[in-house]
């Protein structure tokens, strides 16, 4: 009698309902932390009360990795990695606040300032601006690069809102919230490199956009004074984002219901 040779199943059945994701452990700034394998380093750091500055990240929206302010040092990796789109590995050693990281973050902020005309003293978001706040927190005292002073127009053709490209940092929050939450996808970014710009529909005045629903979510998620409500004067534009987590939850539930219905 021959003994049947054992061939391991190439795709072993994993009970995802019992153990949906792996939990792994790694360190952030020398602290032992544990994370689900599908969580980003940024999210784990936030859960553990470790500060990592971000500008394009917003809870409830997909990640873009656009602003690069959340860069962290990972032992063994030659480059700094954006923590908002980097998943942890077992035994990874992450440093969030070395001199190198802090220096790069300041440089990134300075480049943002030099690229557009961020004149806080006349800005509607003065005092409530995420870019401004980050500059204070990260200790950016001056800009070492030459300002470009690009000529950008203000589009106030919309009935209730206006867009000032001088203040835009191209974080794409407006693009994402319009696409992912409102579902209109009125915003996108045209061009490339230094000539990039957010646009509505076919680069037409916002007020003439056919797809814009006028919901104003883009205005509320904008980190700077680039998108603002009309009638607001200097320092009067305070953004309200309370709607985001709930809408995000409802969208997720909706998707789950659809998926389960099909199955």
């Amino acid at each position: 009698m021959t003994t049947p040779s054992y061939t391991p199943d190439p795709t072993p059945y994993v009970r995802r309902d019992v153990n949906p994701v792996r939990i792994l452990t790694f360190t952030i700034d020398g602290r032992d932390v544990s994370a689900r394998e599908d969580e980003t380093i940024l999210s784990v750091a936030r859960q553990n009360g470790i500060f990592i500055p971000t500008l394009c990240h917003l809870d409830g929206l997909s990640e873009r990795g656009a602003c690069r302010l959340c860069i962290v040092e990972v032992k063994g990796a030659p480059k700094l990695l954006p923590s908002c789109v980097t998943l942890p590995r077992q035994d990874m050693e992450v440093t969030t606040n070395s001199d190198r990281v802090a220096d790069y973050r300041r440089k990134i902020l300075e480049l943002m300032y030099s690229e557009r005309n961020h004149v806080c003293s006349v800005c509607v978001s003065n005092g409530h601006c995420e870019l401004q706040n980050l500059s204070v927190v990260l200790g950016m005292t001056h800009v070492r690069y030459d300002y470009i002073y690009p000529k950008h127009a203000i589009d106030a053709s919309h009935e209730r809102f206006s867009v000032d490209h001088n203040r835009c940092v191209l974080c794409q929050r407006c693009v994402r919230v319009c696409d992912e939450i409102e579902g209109a996808h009125t915003w996108d970014v045209m061009g490339r490199g230094i000539t990039s710009r957010v646009i509505t529909d076919l680069n037409q005045p916002w007020g003439s956009s056919e797809t814009c629903t006028g919901c104003g979510k883009c205005v509320q998620v904008c980190p700077t004074g680039a998108l603002s409500e009309k009638g607001k004067s200097v320092a009067e534009m305070i953004k309200r984002r309370q709607f985001l987590p709930y809408l995000q939850m409802m969208r997720r539930e909706g998707r789950r219901a659809v998926a389960e219905g099909i199955r």
């Binding site: 696409d179 996808h185 996108d188 045209m190 509505t200 529909d201 076919l202 680069n203 056919e210 797809t211």
Partner: peptide, 25 residues
């Protein structure tokens, strides 16, 4: 031209701004 972009956007069900973004990228 813009009419062409509109036409393509409508026919492929792609947002107008996305079509313009791709065309200028």
């Amino acid at each position: 031209d813009l009419d062409a972009l509109k036409y393509v956007a409508g026919a492929l069900r792609v947002p107008l701004s996305r079509v313009y973004a791709v065309a200028t990228f």
